[in-house]
Amino acid sequence: MNKQILGYKCKKCGHVQYPYHSRCKKCGHTEWRGFDIVFDTAPLPQDGKLLTFTHLYALPPDFEAVTVSFGIVELSDGHRITGQLKIEAPKIGMKVQGKVELVRQEGYTKHWGLVFYSAA
């Protein structure tokens, strides 16, 4: 199954937020179920346009690569997300398509997240 990044949908007003906040950013609502706070979840789209990017050459010590590129992408539903880029010569405004991949391994902990490719 394709992995996805989930947005959190308010049980009251339906606003979808990413990343997670403990209550709705838009209407302030918290839905309690016993001691739990609950949201509906909705997968975020994975296509969008590149808002800005950087190539980082001083990476955290657990990275083996010499450089990793990061970008902020405006997804097709208007949400923004930070992710890694695998694009040779990125340009602001270009169309990108994301895929959930292994983005970082810190010791035994694996982190999955969005990696964007050129959609042109």
């Binding site: 990343p19 980082l56 955290p60 930070t82 602001i92 982190h111």
Partner: peptide, 26 residues
């Protein structure tokens, strides 16, 4: 940085500043 939305990708403060700078320049 945000643990789930930024740090897991390897984003550091210089990376955030780099992205900010590019947009500012543009």
């Amino acid at each position: 940085a945000h643990p789930m939305a930024e740090r897991i990708y390897g984003v550091t403060l210089p990376a955030l500043a780099g992205m900010f700078t590019r947009l500012y320049m543009e």
